[in-house]
Write a protein that binds this DNA or RNA. Sequence first.
DNA 1: TCCCATTAGTTGAATGTTCAATTAATGGTA
DNA 2: TACCATTAATTGAACATTCAACTAATGGGA
Lengths: 152, 152
Amino acid sequence: MSDEARWLNDAELETWLAVIGMVTRLPNELDQQLRRDAHMSHFEYGVLAALEHAEDATRRMSDLAYVCHGSLSRLSHVVRRLEEQNLIERFACPDDGRSTLARLTDDGRRRLAKAAPGHVELVRSLIFDELSEEEAKEYGRLTRRILDRITK
Amino acid sequence: MSDEARWLNDAELETWLAVIGMVTRLPNELDQQLRRDAHMSHFEYGVLAALEHAEDATRRMSDLAYVCHGSLSRLSHVVRRLEEQNLIERFACPDDGRSTLARLTDDGRRRLAKAAPGHVELVRSLIFDELSEEEAKEYGRLTRRILDRITK
DNA sequence: TCCCATTAGTTGAATGTTCAATTAATGGTA
DNA sequence: TACCATTAATTGAACATTCAACTAATGGGA
């Protein structure tokens, strides 16, 4: 309270308001497009994509939660729903009895391939059509530094 | 499908993965701090703050929804809960019978003032302690351009 | 004046996420 | 070996958000 110096100045506030808008509106935008065109949320898309890029299209639940930026609980619920649609299958980890492995099925791969073009098109139109190549790189570098702070 | 050129290249993908991490993790981080220290979500904080900065600490519901980046339905539910805690009051708009005005109460102002220092401290530690003054401005400009695209 | 498309807001149900409790396996260490 | 703190994952309840349906007021036209 006695520390006025720690308040945000005008320039900082302007930046901060833009950041709030971005982190609030962008997920909504991605969710809407994917729900409309591919009947999945952006988080679900991220789970499928994270599996596709993994060795054997397989990951431990906790690793998957980390790379998808979600809690293990959230992931567990989401994976159950994806499993019910046969997009993912779960099986015990042979190395560690506590772990569960999740693997992308062929159906899952097809659903992802169907969803990807429209999703990428939206990402491109919102970010990479707006910024020059160098601006986009700089934006990535700055964002990564902040993200590393958040992740600790 | 036939359009390989529209896919993301390595640099774009790196930028995009950082952005996804940011928009997914930052809201969680803000929510956790505010819930722990002030028993409110970041969205609720935003609603109170948006009212405080308004003329007579009063705004139409739909304006409030816009500046808070949420749907009118979401805002309606949130405002009901805040009203139950006497942080906000609602009353009919004299100019337009369809509109509802929301006003910050004295209790609401106090709750916001109590929550603000800890919240600002977190924002500062995540963003403005990481970036130089010029980097923060640049980050704000780039983010704003993307946000304007999202908002159309 | 009388429509009626549009805008503003609310509500309840369906859905999704968080939170806390629980189960179970692991890896040290006494 | 027996203990137990830690890690991994799941589950159900509580809570928040979205979605669709609804009420109601407004502002133009015909």
